[in-house]
C-alpha cells in the first residue's frame, strides 16, 4: 500500500507526516509512506487543502490536522 502525506512548509503537515509514520509502524503495515511537497504534483493530485492524506490514490482526508488517533482509525478502515 502507498500512503502519501501531502503538504509542506507548515507545522501541521510535518506533524501529520511524523504521526503517520508512527501509525504505520504500530499497525505493522507494509506501506510505503512518502511526503509530497512538490506543488506540481499537488495540482496533479487535485489536492486543494493541506495537510492531506492519500491512500493508494484515494484522498481520505484533506485540510484537517489529524491527530495520531484519527490516523490510526483511518488506516485501520483502509486496510479492512
Amino acid at each position: 500500500m502507498e500512503i502519501l502525506v501531502v503538504g509542506g512548509g507548515c507545522a501541521d503537515c510535518d506533524k501529520v507526516y511524523a504521526d503517520t509514520l508512527e501509525a504505520v509502524e504500530e499497525l505493522g503495515l507494509a506501506a510505503d509512506v512518502r511526503k509530497v511537497e512538490d506543488l506540481v504534483e499537488m495540482v496533479r493530485m487535485g489536492i486543494m487543502s493541506v495537510p492531506a492524506l492519500v491512500v493508494d490514490g484515494r484522498t481520505v482526508s484533506a485540510g484537517r490536522s489529524l491527530r495520531k488517533k484519527q490516523i490510526l482509525q483511518l488506516l485501520r478502515q483502509e486496510t479492512k
Binding site: 503537515c13 499537488m42 495540482v43 489536492i47 486543494m48 487543502s49 493541506v50 485540510g63
Partner: peptide, 15 residues
C-alpha cells in the same frame, strides 16, 4: 471556506 495560510497556494493552484 475553511482555509489556513499554508493551504493558500494549493488552493490558488486548484482554482
Amino acid at each position: 471556506t475553511p482555509f489556513c495560510s499554508c493551504s493558500s497556494i494549493p488552493l490558488f493552484m486548484g482554482f
